[in-house]
Nucleic acid binder design. Structure first.
Lengths: 320, 320
DNA sequence: AAGGCTCATAGATCTCATCTATATTGAAGG
DNA sequence: CCTTCAATATAGATGAGATCTATGAGCCTT
């Protein structure tokens, strides 16, 4: 449970000590800093000692005659001064009018995005800002990335075969893909299924399973299991893949957290393998060059907050 | 004495509340934040209330059912997240090796820089870093600025007629210029001196007193007092101006804090006017495009700290 | 209505930053 | 060599205030 010491640092640290340290450096002395701060000398002395304990570095060499700031101390001072600057500007930053947030968000998204977390977040954001409007355009992942590059939408949500330059990305969630067959498939009612049973089976596939695409890993999985060499059905839409599996056009891959309810309802059945399944990241991408509207900025901020609060493990959708 | 409320903000604020606020936003709730922080709910509730009191803004609308972050709250969260980020990176930042700072500082400076504060700072810095070496090249202000633009020196110290684009500047100190005459000048022993006594008097001048130069204000002063139309001596060096004044080549302007000791020693005498004297800033200029060495970065940091500690009023050299 | 969430409030408690007082250190000066 | 001075460190007392427990109030669900 305990994180490495490095990670805990900002939590254990008393942030006010940074301000005190800044003053000590600027006033060149503990006594002078104490005067400046309206405190007594032992107070500041103790504070500095606490900070040195937290950082694990000697920051200032202080003797009756000497007062020298060590190299770590110099570096720390620079940062403290910056932080102080940010905090100084907070009042004016907060002085935005409280008018209802208005504006429009155009979101480019792929069909296969299914995430409780994201729906939940969207719900909360729309409740908090009832005057923000939304448009969703559904596209293939590649086109989503292109639209964001061309600044034609506020954000994109899609799969990525490689993280593009010039775009900011954050991982919304992760999913695993498993193989499934429909009720009409002979294997659906088999007692046990061995990997060999899949040999030569026809299959349906996402267009993005092609070599070089973001779902490339799925085609590797198929190759590993020895399925047929060519597809029998193809689509870029998750819903159509699901339809084709249930219609028994072929075996196909689905995100297991999406398939789960269909499995529970007895519509489809998962096939081997059950471990080492391909994992895929679903990204929210933005164009840093875009001049963001208030609504877009607020959305991004809220989204970052939401993602910070949830560990990536908890946004990794696996069978529990 | 009391600064505007805005200025006091970073001092009055408990910086740790920023961290708490960040968690409240990310966890979407006071109770959840309390769990996360290992505290109890009323504690966090009180903390948030304190923060809202400090900022003077409602940050979160919290009711048993509702949890909405206001616009100021959103803005604050963004900043808090940034600050948290900086603090998280502190440990690695402080992990610089403690080896003695070495390196060289090449400083381009004008002749007329005379400042206890700067000498004092330089002394302390050189004591703290005995292995740093220095070279001073004395040039006219304009050339100093050019050298820095061309990245041919670490820093420059000079007068500026206008603050240049593309260079960072900070005011080292301010000085006032007064008019002086030497012992051999008839006015030196006059009982009283009226402004009219200066009419038509010959004078000596800094080259930078020319129209458009940084000391332009001095030529305006001369015009106001009705001195002769053309100069009798000119130099870019303060020492030579001083020499010419004492040699009675003409009346001349000197920084009053520099002239003070000569006045006290009976070498020169100040002439009217005694008020509304031209004020001049002496700048330390740096080239932001320069890739700074460790020594240069440390020097700048230390210099910023020193300047932050001393109010500009106290770096304004006037007769006290 | 009852139960279960949420957050706010009140009062008790106890931690810990701050204080006063004193010791230590090293330099400067008689 | 022994003060004096000016700085920092240490020790112990004190008190403000952050934290706790306990309770109340509002709102939703069952």
């Amino acid at each position: 449970m305990s994180l490495p010491q490095q990670q805990r640092f900002p939590w254990n640290l008393d942030w006010n000590l940074l301000r005190t340290f800044m003053v000590v450096v600027e006033q060149r002395g503990i006594s002078k800093a104490a005067d400046f701060l309206g405190l007594k000398q032992p107070t500041v002395s103790a504070a500095l000692k606490r900070l040195e304990l937290s950082t694990g570095k000697q920051l200032i060499i202080r003797k009756p005659n000497e007062f020298t700031i060590t190299r770590p101390g110099q570096a720390l001072y620079t940062e403290c001064a910056k932080i102080f600057g940010s905090i100084s500007q907070l009042p004016s930053l907060l002085d935005v009018d409280k008018a209802e947030l208005r504006g429009h968000l155009s979101i480019a998204i792929t069909s296969s995005v299914i995430s409780e977390h994201f729906d939940d977040f969207l719900n909360r954001f729309s409740q908090a800002h009832p005057h923000v409007t939304y448009s969703f355009s559904v596209n293939e992942s590649e086109d989503v990335a292109t639209m964001i590059s061309q600044n034609r939408a506020s954000f994109g949500i899609c799969l990525l075969s490689k993280v593009p330059q010039n775009l900011n990305t954050m991982v919304l969630y992760r999913e695993y893909f498993g193989l499934y067959c429909g009720t009409r498939h002979p294997l659906f009612h088999a007692k046990t299924i061995t990997p060999d049973d899949l040999r030569g089976e026809p299959f349906v596939a996402f267009q993005t399973e092609a070599e070089g695409g973001p779902l490339e890993a799925i085609s590797h999985l198929r190759a590993r299991m020895g399925l047929a060499n060519t597809w029998r059905g193809v689509s870029s839409s998750l819903n159509e893949i699901r339809r084709m599996i249930m219609a028994n056009i072929g075996i196909g891959a689905l995100p297991i957290h999406v398939a789960k309810q269909d499995v529970a309802a007895g519509h489809i059945r998962q096939l081997p393998p059950y471990a080492d399944l391909p994992m895929v990241n679903i990204y929210l991408i933005t164009n840093p060059a875009r001049r963001k509207s208030d609504a877009e900025a607020a959305f991004l901020t809220a989204c970052e907050a939401a993602l910070s609060a949830i560990d990536i493990e908890d946004r990794t959708y696996a069978l529990e």
